[in-house]
């Protein structure tokens, strides 16, 4: 990673707006002052970063250990006694893991896009229109997502069975069914996240556009969505991750290992109390974390692009 790439990221970030220290007198003072300024501005951030990184990584070291040491288990205390890729080989030999990875990417991708589209549309309506029942609908959405789903599996199972008779693609063992069920939650948390965000975009922008003859659809697609792109990226990522790790509904609907998502497959590896395959599970968990991290790496520039900060000035 080069400095060029870093500065490439966009405009100076808002929260920690850069400060210029007062001009120092001598060269030594200047060096001292700039070092102090560096510590105040940047240095402590590195310390926080290193400490938190350790905190984040520490338990995961044991996951990696389980993945690369075929003899390691969930309670292993000694690390990296052996190294082999046996678990990875077993994982791919025991199940169509590549296909399952693809299934997961499809489900995660479509759900993320669908959630962003539907959630953003709803958030726009709530943020920009003052209609009858608006407050009620918002509250209703908030309350619905608090419904404990723990005992809903029978209802979902029966629903999928009968829907499948009408629309085979919404029946058992179809990825599209799982996507549809996940989209049922599209107007949940994410709408609230976006709604809060949309509220920070000054309404004067819309009005200016309206005066210029833009329709509500044009305002939405060309102005608002562009302004809130960081949150769209965040919501896309969050939705992708949550469908990536959801297994309760997916395992109910997807009965064929060829159709499984990674979460179902991973859960299957350790779902048996007496024969949990923690090694293969860890190997699979490491692999399944990669798409998430790559997506984050890719979306980072949108999340921190600071587009809004620039636009508001105009």
């Amino acid at each position: 990673m080069t400095d060029a790439e870093l500065t490439d990221n966009g405009l100076p970030a808002a929260g920690g707006a850069a400060e210029t220290p007062p001009p120092p007198r001598t060269a030594a003072d200047r060096a001292k002052a700039s070092r102090r300024a560096w510590w105040r501005e940047v240095g402590w951030r590195h310390i926080v970063a290193v400490v938190v990184s350790l905190y984040a990584i520490f338990p995961l070291v044991f996951v990696i250990n389980m993945a690369v040491d075929p003899n390691a288990g969930l309670a292993s205390q000694s690390l990296f006694q052996n190294f082999s890729l046996q678990n990875f080989r077993d994982l791919f030999a025991s199940r169509p893991f590549g296909q399952q990875l693809l299934n997961t990417l499809i489900v995660g991708g479509v759900t993320a896009i669908g959630t962003v589209l539907m959630g953003a549309a709803a958030a726009y309506a709530f943020s920009r229109f003052r209609f009858e029942g608006r407050r009620f609908t918002l509250t209703f959405l908030l309350v619905v997502q608090m419904f404990p789903q723990l005992l809903a599996f029978v209802a979902i199972f029966l629903l999928v069975q009968s829907l499948g008779e009408v629309f085979p693609v919404l029946g058992m063992n179809h990825l599209s069914t799982v996507i549809a069920i996940y989209l049922g939650g599209a107007l949940g948390v994410n709408t609230f996240l976006m709604y809060g965000f949309f509220n920070t975009v000054p309404i004067s922008l819309d009005e200016a556009a309206k005066l210029d003859g833009a329709t509500h659809a044009q305002i939405y697609w060309t102005i608002i969505l562009r302004m809130v792109s960081p949150v769209l990226a965040v919501v896309g990522l969050l939705s992708f991750i949550s469908s990536f790790s959801e297994f309760v509904i997916a395992r109910l609907v997807l009965t064929d290992p060829e159709k499984w998502t990674l979460a179902v497959s991973l859960y299957d590896l350790v779902g048996n109390d007496r024969n949990p395959y923690w090694g293969m599970f860890a190997a699979g968990a490491v692999i399944s974390a990669l798409p998430v991290l790559l997506l984050f790496l890719f979306l980072q520039r949108y999340i921190v692009s600071g587009l809004t900060a620039g636009a508001v000035k105009g």
């Binding site: 405009l11 100076p12 970030a13 808002a14 929260g15 707006a17 996240l193 809060g196 965000f197 920070t200 975009v201 809130v228 960081p230 949150v231 990226a233 965040v234 969050l238 999340i303 921190v304 692009s305 600071g306 587009l307 809004t308 900060a309 508001v312 000035k313």
Partner: peptide, 11 residues
């Protein structure tokens, strides 16, 4: 979420 939200605070 906070990283995203911070971007909306006008510099």
């Amino acid at each position: 979420v906070c990283t995203g939200a911070l971007q909306s605070i006008p510099g």
